[in-house]
Computed example of a mutant assay.
Amino acid sequence: MGGQSGDRAQGRNHEARVLRRHLPARVLVARRHTRGQSVSSEDEKTTAIGLLEREWHQLDTWLRSLSEAQLDRPVFSAGPGWRVRDMPTHMAWWQELAGRVAEKIAAEGGAPDERGSRPFLGIDTPFDELNATTHETWRERPMKDRWDRWLVAHSRMIDAFRALSPDQLLQGEGGLEGLKRYFAVPALIHLRSHRQNIEAALKETTTT
């Protein structure tokens, strides 16, 4: 019992760190009106997924434009030994997690409770161990493999989101960018946070 309670607290602390700089980006999904008729929930779902796609592709284009020297820069906030080149596979793991959650919801119903996505999937490994394992698994792999992993994980997540009903994916009041919180964090907020980490790392190394 004590270990589970500590793990939940650790998870909440991790999520708080990811969200802290992005709370101003929170928006509610509002019913818009076109020619006197409200936009359907399917339209809202399409809009939300479109936002995820645009932000991911913008980040993907930027990351792929970095030089080998930039990819080797240390990312100070990510942990000892982490470099920019380690971030795509790190973010991919969490996007794939969101995809797995969506797949389970589509197949079985239900949804993560306040404990989050990992218990919903039967994962009891702490966040830090999961991140460390991903880093160790991929740290010697070539960038081609990392880019492939990054794309496959994102595609799996988007396909899984498209298979959900609007009610399963979207949340207005209490959501983030119109999405359920457990989808918004790995799909969008996490990427925004780590883009800031990478930008800070690149800026730091050019001024020291």
Results as ranks from 00 to 15, higher is better:
G2L: 10
R8E: 15
H14Q: 04
H14E: 06
H14M: 09
E15V: 14
A16D: 09
R21V: 00
L23M: 04
L23D: 03
P24C: 03
A25E: 09
V27N: 00
L28W: 09
V29S: 05
R35M: 02
G36S: 08
G36C: 07
G36M: 06
V39L: 11
S40L: 06
S40T: 15
S40C: 06
D43T: 12
E44V: 00
K45A: 11
K45G: 02
T46A: 15
T47M: 07
L51S: 08
R54G: 11
W56G: 05
H57V: 11
Q58E: 15
T61Y: 13
T61F: 12
L63C: 10
S65R: 12
S65K: 12
S65Q: 14
L71T: 03
L71F: 08
V75F: 02
V75A: 01
F76P: 00
G79Q: 00
P80D: 10
G81H: 06
R83S: 09
D86T: 11
D86F: 14
M87T: 13
P88Q: 11
T89A: 13
T89D: 07
H90S: 06
H90F: 09
A92V: 02
W94S: 05
A98Q: 01
R100N: 10
E103P: 10
E103F: 10
K104Q: 13
E108N: 13
G109R: 06
A111K: 13
A111I: 05
D113G: 15
D113Y: 09
R118H: 05
G122D: 03
F127W: 07
D128Y: 04
L130G: 01
N131P: 08
A132I: 00
E136W: 05
E136M: 08
W138N: 08
K144I: 14
D145H: 07
D145E: 15
L151A: 09
H154S: 07
S155V: 12
S155H: 14
R156Q: 12
D159N: 11
A160E: 05
R162D: 06
R162A: 14
L164V: 00
P166I: 07
D167T: 04
Q171D: 02
G172A: 15
L176N: 02
L176Q: 04
G178N: 09
A184V: 07
H190F: 10
H190S: 04
L191M: 09
L191E: 06
K203N: 10
E204T: 08
T205V: 10
T206I: 02
